[in-house]
Design a binder for these strands. Structure first.
Length: 361
DNA sequence: AATTCGTGGTT
DNA sequence: TAACCAAGAAT
């Protein structure tokens, strides 16, 4: 049989990890880890939350910024939530930032500023689910927890040639991960599985020749590792339409408002917009502007969210600083400090560049 | 259990 | 270039 005993897999992978691990800002290298050194639980937690559905490259600058602003979890707990949202702006999935703040508060107020050191204790905290609780427990506390993210799903599904589709096959795969996870160096094992998935066992054109599991892998033996994991068909992405209104005063202030706490871009800052509907009717005209002004169309911004595409017609107006009951006027020189999601930065950039072209101060 | 949550890089 | 997808969680 091609399959070896599961227990033999872990040393093989750890040996590979010792030589080929990625060096990451939040990580303790395997040599230090073997000497008993552990990564700071705060750093591990912060990086893991940022890395949820987000690439290492995107996370790196945010991780550095957050640590500079808030060196300890108690600093983050004490920070104004608006500051946290502004610092998170651009990273996406903004519920993570709200839960990050809540979690920091819980750790500071209910756990004396110390993270729980068990998977169960971690799992009870806001924004920490099945994956993240297992990952922190393994990486920061060397617990023998089964860590399964998208990388691990890919590695496991190929190793065992699991053809049942995700997400239904998740429990089966997690059981396989649990079988493989060693009591020795479980944290390094988890990180090694993810490094293997990220650098060798990639979604397209995996480098099987360099894989420590090559001789054990059923998918490789079947000559079709790329066909794993099998996933359920995804729905097609609908298109929604809307209009955004960028009002600027002669003094160089733009009208901003805050979105409601829940739902899409919850708690983030925006310029006034119409509702985003599935039809074009009215959404692309200035009829629904926040107040009467000389609204001028200045093009369309297309932005792709997870489950729909938005085509936002952008309007701008140079106006007096009218009183608004919902929102505030912010100097455009201070927009960088606002909690503006990327779609709003696109809309504002489209409008303001034109405003300053036509009306240089 | 299926949906709803961003964004940017890669292929 | 359109599709895929990245250290998933909450509801």
């Amino acid at each position: 049989m091609l399959q070896t005993l599961p227990a033999l897999h872990a040393p093989k992978l750890l040996s590979w990890y010792d030589r080929h691990h990625r060096e990451l800002p939040w990580r303790v290298n395997p040599a230090a880890a073997k000497a008993g050194k552990r990564a700071d639980p705060y750093h591990v937690w912060l990086s893991e939350v940022m890395l949820q559905q987000t690439t290492v490259q995107a996370v790196k600058p945010y991780f550095a910024k957050f640590l500079a602003l808030w060196p300890k979890v108690t600093d983050l707990a004490a920070a104004p939530v608006e500051d946290v949202m502004a610092a998170w702006a651009g990273l996406g999935y903004y519920a993570r930032a709200r839960n990050l703040k809540k979690c920091a508060e819980t750790v500071a107020l209910e756990h004396g500023g110390v993270f729980p050191d068990t998977e169960e204790g971690l799992r009870a905290l806001p924004g920490i689910g099945d994956y993240t609780s297992a990952a922190i427990a393994a990486i920061a506390f060397n617990r023998q927890s089964a860590v399964m993210d998208g990388n691990v799903e890919r590695v496991i599904s190929r190793l065992h040639a699991i053809d049942a589709p995700l997400p239904g096959s998740k429990p089966l795969m997690k059981a396989r991960v649990a079988e493989l996870t060693p009591s020795d160096r479980p944290g390094d094992f988890a990180q090694a599985m993810m490094d293997l998935g990220a650098t060798i066992c990639t979604p397209k054109r995996p480098t099987c020749a360099l894989c420590p599991f090559r001789d054990d892998c059923l998918a490789f033996a079947e000559h079709d590792p790329e066909s794993f994991p099998v996933k359920a068909a995804k729905k097609e992405k609908p298109v929604r339409f809307g209009a955004a209104f960028v009002a600027v005063t002669p003094g160089g202030e733009a009208l901003l408002k805050r979105r409601i706490e829940s739902g899409l871009l919850g708690g983030m800052t925006e310029v006034p917009t119409t509702a985003w509907t599935s039809r074009v009717d009215g959404g692309t005209t200035a009829d629904h502007a926040p107040f009467p002004a000389g609204w001028e169309a200045c093009g369309t911004v297309v932005h792709v969210f997870t489950h729909f595409e938005l085509r936002l017609s952008v309007f701008r107006a140079l106006t007096e600083k009218v009183a608004v009951d919902d929102g505030w006027w912010e100097p455009v020189t201070n927009l960088e400090a606002q909690a503006l999601p990327t779609v709003m930065k696109k809309a504002i950039a489209q409008a303001i560049s034109r405003a300053f072209e036509k009306h240089p101060n």
